[in-house]
Design a protein around this nucleic acid. Structure first.
Length: 494
RNA sequence: GGGCGUGUAGCCUAGUCUGGAUAGGGCUCCGGGUUCCUAACCCGGCGGUCGGGGGUUCGAAUCCCCCCACGCCCGCCA
């Protein structure tokens, strides 16, 4: 007991953190194409990736997060294709999707909405209009040749800016952005192609396309070959991804990619190509399953089944505001708003994190907005209770002193036991990538504290008072730490 | 057809890597709890063929084999 409490209460120490490993690790996550706002399906990637980064940092790793921006593919080409035309010249079906558009609006509060709005219509239109599709294909070829149209990068950056603002609402930020075009510009894609040409299983197809015979890599039988350049010599996405990964593998000791299950085959293809070019090591993949709609199927912007993160967060704030207003007549509007946002964001982040990544999640509003039970607000509430006791005990930040003998009742012992589990939980999550274990631990600790709270009158005058305050101090610190790992705001009151 | 993933009470979920005793939680539902540190809480109750069948083992949700269901992927797209 003394050891656990001592570590949890040590001033300045990060209870639960491991010593620095000296190891550098790159976590690539999210990497959504800049084509429009995030829906909740896409953002599972970011929430898992961001949390993994926090957990690995706590475990002592030196973490760099990267967002890989695809600015040279067909999707990027579609955005530039449509916005390079005067709006009056847009095909009517696309025009109909964004009737208010007058031209590319880059300086609005939501450039991802402004520029991404016509995207689904463009996508649909191209399927039925080969001549337009050919224009986009031609543009795509230009992009890949390094011939970027005047405002191309501007469009991509604007949409990305809007998307990142949304992610920022739930605490997701990136250390670095890596643009796919940079690997074409610096010649590294070309070097990859050269190496693959000389690789053990290289073959040239009838039309001149370069491929790798993948039969030895255990890939599906129907995909015996990995094509790395088209007949016209241009590279494919996976080829450019090899260049990106060689750069990452050369710079970081560990490389982790957070990928949706639909990219599972891509991951194995990438591994095969990295082996072919003689890469010294390989990336680790953290694969998560989709968030589906209750009726089944993935979220789709075009089908109208997508739930946007911003809308979810807005609704969460509305509901949280009502909850806070119900019980806090003592706070002003600004404070009420601050608490509501913290609760709302905590609920949404926790809802995604509570489930193992390999489980598919059927999105339901009432689940995502739950503030009770196994939820973010449940843990936040326990933290707020602890903080409140410490304020009233006039020991918000210590110093804390305890005698083990004062904490020999079952509730205190159980709480200490729960606290002692924190370091190994962090270590486990870091080792396995099972960040949901941290969410589970957070709930278990909050649960144990709530029981303690119910049974032990901490501030009651008596010989145990100081020790009990110390135990609450240790719990508050640990709850704060675990909430930070989850990216959920540790509210001082709610 | 092949590959990958998932299947645990009405619903959601932990545990499966590393086999161990009555399979933990949450939601819903029912019944309690507030002169006392925030009731977004606590206590009790209802509810389980751990997808099915074989096998290994003293012992299987967990390991092996077969099958079933669901999801995703199997482009010179990304």
């Amino acid at each position: 007991m003394s050891a656990t409490l001592g570590r949890a209460l040590a001033p300045g120490a990060d209870f639960g953190s491991g010593p620095p490993t000296g190891r550098t690790v790159c976590i690539e996550h999210t990497s959504a194409n800049p084509t429009g706002p995030f829906h909740i399906g896409r953002v599972r990637n970011g929430i898992i990736g961001d949390t993994l980064a926090r957990v690995l940092r706590a475990a002592g790793e030196t973490v760099t997060t990267q967002y890989y921006v695809d600015d040279v593919g067909r999707q990027a080409a579609m955005i530039t294709w449509i916005w390079s035309k005067p709006v009056e010249a847009w095909p009517p079906p696309i025009r109909a999707a964004d009737p208010g558009a007058t031209g590319p609006r880059l300086d609005g509060p939501r450039p991802d909405l402004d520029l991404g709005r016509p995207y689904p219509a463009v996508s649909a239109y191209l399927k039925e209009h080969p001549e337009a599709a050919e224009e986009v294909a031609e543009l795509s070829r230009r992009l890949e040749a390094g011939d970027l149209p005047a405002r191309h990068r501007e469009f991509a950056e604007a949409i990305l800016r809007g998307m990142l603002a949304t992610l920022g609402r739930i605490g997701i930020r990136f250390d670095e952005f890596v643009w796919e075009s940079s690997f074409l510009a610096d010649g590294s894609v070309e070097r990859v192609v050269q190496r693959l040409r000389a690789a053990p299983h290289a073959t040239v197809l009838e039309n001149g396309a370069l491929a790798i015979d993948a039969s030895g890599y255990g890939l599906p039988k129907e995909a015996p070959q990995i094509v790395v350049t088209r007949g016209d010599g241009t590279s494919l996405y996976v080829t450019r991804d090899v260049a990106y990964h060689l750069a990452k593998l050369g710079r970081f000791e560990r490389v982790v990619d957070v990928l949706g299950q639909d990219h599972g085959l891509h991951a194995r293809t990438l591994e095969a190509l990295l082996t072919e070019v003689g890469a010294p090591k390989r990336p680790e993949f953290l694969i998560y399953q989709d968030i589906t709609v209750p009726e089944g199927g993935r979220m789709s912007t075009r089908k109208g089944s997508a739930v946007y993160l911003d809308d979810l967060l807005d609704e969460a704030v509305v509901r949280a505001r009502a909850e806070v207003a119900k019980r806090r007549s003592d706070v002003d509007l600004a404070e009420l708003e601050r608490i509501a946002r913290g609760v709302a964001n905590g609920a949404v982040r926790y809802h995604i994190l509570r489930v193992a990544p390999e489980k598919a999640v059927a999105f339901r509003w009432e689940d995502a907005l739950a503030f009770e039970g196994r939820s973010g607000p449940f843990v936040q509430y326990a933290h707020a209770r602890a903080a409140s006791i410490l304020r009233k005990g006039e020991r918000p930040d210590g110093p804390y002193e305890f005698r083990s003998a004062d904490l020999s009742d079952p509730s205190s012992l159980a709480l200490v036991r729960s606290l002692s589990l924190f370091p190994r939980t962090v270590a486990y999550a870091a080792r396995t990538g099972h960040v949901h274990a941290v969410a589970g631990y957070a709930h278990a600790l909050a649960d144990e504290f709530n029981r303690f709270y119910e049974r032990v009158p901490v501030l009651q005058e008596g010989p145990e008072r100081e020790s009990r305050i110390a135990l609450v101090g240790a719990t508050r610190t640990t709850l704060r730490r675990v909430l930070e790992l989850l990216g959920v705001e540790p509210l001082e009151s709610m």
